[in-house]
C-alpha cells in the first residue's frame, strides 16, 4: 500500500500595517500550489481566501502568522493573530459590514466583502476570536 505523503507546510509571518508586503503570503501559497500542480480553479479559491485573510490581518491585527498545510486531498490555511479580535462574528460575516478606516478604503479594501468572500471560496471555515487577544481563522479547501 502506498504511504500518503507528509503534508507540505508553509509558515509566513504577517506584519500589521505593512501594506507593501501584504498579499505576499497569499502569492507564495499560490505559487507553491501551482508548482505542485493543483487545478487552476482550486488554486484560485485558495488564493482569494488566503489573500483576504492576510489583508484582514494586515489591516486589523497587530501582527500574526499564516500557516498553510498542503496535502493532495485538502489545503488548510490557519491564520493566527494578536489584535483586537472580532466582537461580533455574525455581524462581521455580513456583506458590506466594515470597520476599516478611510485610508484602507482608499487602497481598495474595507468594502465589507472580506469574510463573505472567504466563506464563498472555502469548504470549511472556523473563526475563533477573543476580544482584546486575537483571532484565529482556519479554512479548509478540498481537492475534488
Amino acid at each position: 500500500m502506498k504511504e500518503s505523503p507528509s503534508p507540505l507546510e508553509l509558515t509566513i509571518p504577517v506584519r500589521a500595517r505593512d501594506f507593501l508586503a501584504g498579499g505576499d503570503g497569499a502569492a507564495r501559497v499560490r505559487q507553491v500550489l501551482q508548482q505542485v500542480g493543483f487545478p487552476p480553479a482550486l488554486i484560485r479559491r485558495v488564493a482569494i481566501a488566503t489573500y483576504e485573510v492576510e489583508m484582514n490581518m494586515v489591516i486589523h491585527s497587530t501582527g500574526g502568522e499564516l500557516r498553510a498545510e498542503i496535502t493532495p486531498e485538502v489545503i488548510t490555511i490557519t491564520a493566527r493573530d494578536t489584535g483586537p479580535g472580532i466582537p461580533d462574528i455574525d455581524l462581521a460575516m455580513q456583506e458590506g459590514y466594515s470597520t476599516a478606516p478611510r485610508e484602507i478604503q482608499e487602497m481598495g479594501f474595507g468594502a465589507g466583502m472580506g469574510l463573505p468572500n472567504i466563506r464563498r471560496c472555502v469548504d470549511e471555515l472556523e473563526i475563533r476570536s477573543t476580544p482584546g487577544q486575537g483571532t484565529t481563522v482556519k479554512i479548509g479547501i478540498y481537492n475534488r
Binding site: F19, R44, A47
Partner: peptide, 12 residues
C-alpha cells in the same frame, strides 16, 4: 498600488 497586482494575480 501593489494590491492591484496581487488581486489581478489571484483572479488570474
Amino acid at each position: 498600488n501593489t494590491h492591484v497586482l496581487h488581486t489581478a494575480s489571484m483572479v488570474d
